[in-house]
Design a protein around this nucleic acid. Structure first.
Length: 437
RNA sequence: CGGAGCGUGGCGCAGUCUGGUAGCGCACUUGACUGGGGGUCAAGUGGUCGUAGGUUCAAAUCCUAUCGCUCCGACCA
């Protein structure tokens, strides 16, 4: 992408509405614009990141055998009356009427919808287990939206639903999601810690929140500091037993959110207990037959008996993660994207647009990187160099190739790593090869 | 939902108390000079002062209503 053509409205000054760093940076970097309270438009740069996050989430879901579906944003109220949640959910649920005065709602979550689908099409215990997920926009009419996309009213969520024949099987589904979540966040460079959590209005008796630590986090959390050193990517899952071992390992140390914090239990850990603020990026629940019973979703068992499937639901706030990532990865100059979610991998800075040697060197490199499938943002604008550096740093492109007439005379360019600010001189000819590997 | 505050060009703000030509910085346009970390000079474009009603010779400014947004608290991916 050429920056001169890219729709990237960056801001030098921050809109006064934005209070926390991720919100400020998302506005300044031209990622989002607010539409109304807690509702945002995603501009090209922000959307690229959102898609990358979404892709990682999807890949890890697929990897454990979850199958993607896409359920609607608008749901009939009847479904929610069946489960009993139409009244329970309260004002947070956006209720609407269509032209025939039929009651509808903008889905805040999809337990009812998925249960309806499963009960209509799954008849036998042999059809289970099933893990189904979708990535869809949700709406929750928060009393007080804030922190940009971190607590929006409209947000993109991945929600998975598990259906199993027994508690034992349901635990396996739960474990699969548990580990898939650890991997999902780890791939984005985030250390997410599973913490014992409240089940809230979704109900159930087994639940973990996945929390990333950040000073601006909304919840107060407590955990054993050794958890921060755990690495899920080195763990290998071969069967249900090894899956259980990983879950056991991660749940062996104390970790709880404020609501579930147990003072006497925590005191045993003394010095090793960490008290910090955290951002909830995922939440998994096992809730048994709550919905299958309420909505009469059943399958036939081996003896022809009626089985109410054991269910769980598993959410990742995809749009929130974009904000969470920025909270975790930024410095004074702007965003510092981890490679896995960076909107572009390389930025090219033409320090003298209009100089034929510079232009030629830049365009050649730009094209060859593109040809090799590397996402590259070429700043070909006739801006002052300071503005180019500032913009490239602000939007957080991990690698910057700096091409100017001075060094180009020797066939050399500068390569700057955004995260550390380190620069090295490198032959122009060597840049492509460097990034293909 | 309780408490507080703010709506003036794309962004950041002054002007409101004490009514009288709508202003500043950034951004944007044009030209020139420039060019290794948000440049300099010159000339420009852009505003129903959130909306509606009222008071007044006269309203961004006073009054009333209303809408929107933000912050603090209680709730949540």
């Amino acid at each position: 992408m050429r920056l001169s053509e890219f729709f990237l409205p960056t801001l030098k000054e921050v809109p006064s509405d934005a209070q926390i760093i991720s919100h400020r940076l998302m506005l300044r970097a031209g990622m989002i614009r607010q539409s109304s309270a807690g509702i945002y438009s995603w501009l090209p740069l922000g959307l690229r990141v959102l898609r990358k996050v979404e892709k990682i989430v999807r890949e890890e879901q697929d990897a454990v055998g979850a199958q993607e579906v896409l359920m609607p944003t608008i749901q009939p109220a009847d479904l929610w009356k069946e489960s009993g949640r139409y009244d329970d959910y309260g004002a947070e649920m956006l209720r609407i009427k269509d032209r025939h005065k039929r009651e509808l709602l903008y889905g805040p979550t999809n337990e009812e919808q998925i249960t309806e689908i499963v009960r209509a099409h799954v008849r036998s215990y042999k059809d289970l287990p099933k893990l189904l997920y979708h990535i869809q926009w949700k709406f929750r009419d928060e009393v007080r939206p804030r922190f940009g996309v971190m607590r929006g009213r409209e947000f993109l969520m991945k929600d998975t639903y598990s259906f199993d024949n027994s508690y034992e099987e349901a635990r396996i589904s739960y474990n699969k999601m548990f580990v898939a979540y650890l991997r999902t966040f780890a791939r984005m460079g985030l250390q997410a810690i599973p913490m014992v959590a409240d089940t809230g209005p979704i109900g159930g008796d087994l639940s973990h929140e996945f929390i990333i630590l950040a000073d601006t986090g909304e919840s107060e959390v407590y955990c054993h500091k050794d958890l921060l050193g755990f690495d899920v990517m080195s763990e290998e899952v071969t069967d249900d037993q090894s899956l259980q071992l990983i879950v056991d390992r991660w749940t062996s140390l104390y970790a709880a959110t404020d609501e579930k914090h147990d003072l006497s239990e925590a005191e045993k850990h003394g010095e090793s207990l960490l008290n910090a603020r955290g951002i909830e990026v995922g939440h998994i629940f096992y809730f048994g037959t709550k919905y299958s019973e309420a909505m009469k979703a059943t399958v036939s068992g081996p003896q022809g008996e009626t089985i109410f499937p054991e269910m769980g639901s598993y959410g990742i706030g995809v749009s929130r993660l974009v904000g969470g990532l920025i909270e975790a990865f930024h410095d004074d100059d702007g965003i510092v994207w981890p490679d896995a979610v960076a909107p572009f991998h390389i930025g090219i800075l033409n320090l003298k647009s209009g100089d034929s040697a510079c232009d030629q060197a830049c365009i050649n490199l730009y094209r060859s990187l593109q040809t090799n499938g590397i996402e590259v943002l070429y700043d070909d604008r006739t801006e002052r160099v300071g503005a180019k550096f500032a913009d490239m740093d602000l939007i957080g492109v991990p690698w910057q190739v700096i091409i100017g007439p001075r060094s180009l005379k020797n066939g050399v360019v500068e390569l700057k790593k955004r995260a550390t600010g380190e620069r090295e001189e490198i032959a122009l000819d060597a840049v492509l090869e460097r990034f293909i590997n």
